[in-house]
Amino acid sequence: MHKQGHWGYLFTLPFTINILVFVAFPVVFSAYVSFVKWDLFNPPEWVGLQNWQQLFEQKVFWISVRNVFYFALVFVPLQTIAALIIAHLLNQAIRGQTLLRLFYFLPVVTPWIAGGVLWAWLFNTKYGLINWLLETINLPAVKWLDSKHWWVVVGSVALVNVWKGVGSSMILLLAGMQNISKEMKEASQIDGASNWMYFSRIVFPLVSPMIYMVMILSTIAAFQAFDVFLSMFGSQMSNVPERNMVTNMLIYRDAFQLFKMGPASAAAWALFVIILGITLFQRYFEKRWVHYD
């Protein structure tokens, strides 16, 4: 038994090293960097709470927090509702079911570069397909990504993120729906339940754990959103107006364009605290509407 214990430690050693080097060390080091002045080239200089004080005094930080909250308020409900509806439709006995599932999942595996180019063209003020459709019904063209109103720009990017992520959420919800026995649907039909009653009284409560998980994952993804903004605005974050900033864009700009690693690390930890708080808030209300029986 003693020798078997040594073999166990030996086989888990690569995983342990991976956790220590690529997870534990970066977390501890980033916490340390949030208290120093460091530009990646010169030795770190301890400044204490100066980075945190400057962070909370920056107007652009609070603008980025406002924008990421708005982004989440648009993205999470739209993606969850769209994924739930699509999953319910694809759970029916319809023709081309496999092809439709592939069609809805295709954006998930589409690279952000290709998706960003596509949606940048769709949102183009002069030549975009969306504005062309608006003009055909006598509506004015909209500056989706160039608007002076931050909520239009951030909301437009949130719609792109819904297009990208709805497929993965749909797969999770579809898996939950397929665990519902056919006998339960047949029993509801015998009792005279309509399709809406079957969906709202049986399907929705039974898949509520999956819906809750989708909402948790979508909320975390919303507050960590970066690649969608990078693909829509390009890599030059310094050219993005501050009114359109979200927190991860601010972290990227400070760290890798301005080489201010201290403020960037402080902003990253502030974002972590925000995500943790929202997740705990969602956990608090879990037992009120999630049915595990």
Score class of each variant (00 low, 15 high):
172 L>R: 05
217 L>W: 08
139 L>K: 07
172 L>Y: 04
190 I>F: 07
191 D>K: 07
238 S>K: 09
181 S>K: 12
216 I>R: 00
194 S>F: 10
176 G>A: 14
200 S>K: 08
240 V>R: 08
224 Q>H: 13
202 I>N: 03
136 T>K: 06
232 M>H: 06
173 L>V: 04
213 M>V: 15
223 F>L: 15
212 Y>G: 09
169 S>Y: 06
209 P>M: 08
234 G>F: 08
172 L>K: 08
197 M>V: 02
234 G>E: 13
222 A>Y: 01
202 I>R: 01
158 A>E: 03
167 G>E: 13
186 E>G: 01
141 A>P: 01
192 G>D: 03
236 Q>K: 12
238 S>M: 12
169 S>C: 11
239 N>V: 14
166 V>A: 03
173 L>M: 14
219 T>Y: 09
203 V>T: 12
240 V>H: 08
224 Q>D: 10
174 L>S: 02
237 M>P: 01
199 F>M: 02
222 A>W: 01
212 Y>Q: 08
237 M>E: 06
224 Q>N: 15
184 M>K: 12
137 I>M: 04
142 V>M: 14
192 G>N: 05
140 P>I: 02
213 M>P: 04
181 S>E: 15
206 L>G: 02
210 M>F: 07
244 N>A: 06
187 A>W: 11
184 M>R: 12
232 M>T: 05
232 M>K: 00
202 I>D: 08
197 M>F: 01
216 I>T: 03
246 V>I: 13
244 N>D: 04
195 N>V: 10
158 A>Q: 06
198 Y>Q: 10
204 F>H: 13
149 H>G: 06
155 G>E: 01
249 M>L: 13
216 I>E: 00
195 N>T: 12
147 S>W: 03
163 W>P: 05
160 V>L: 09
182 K>R: 10
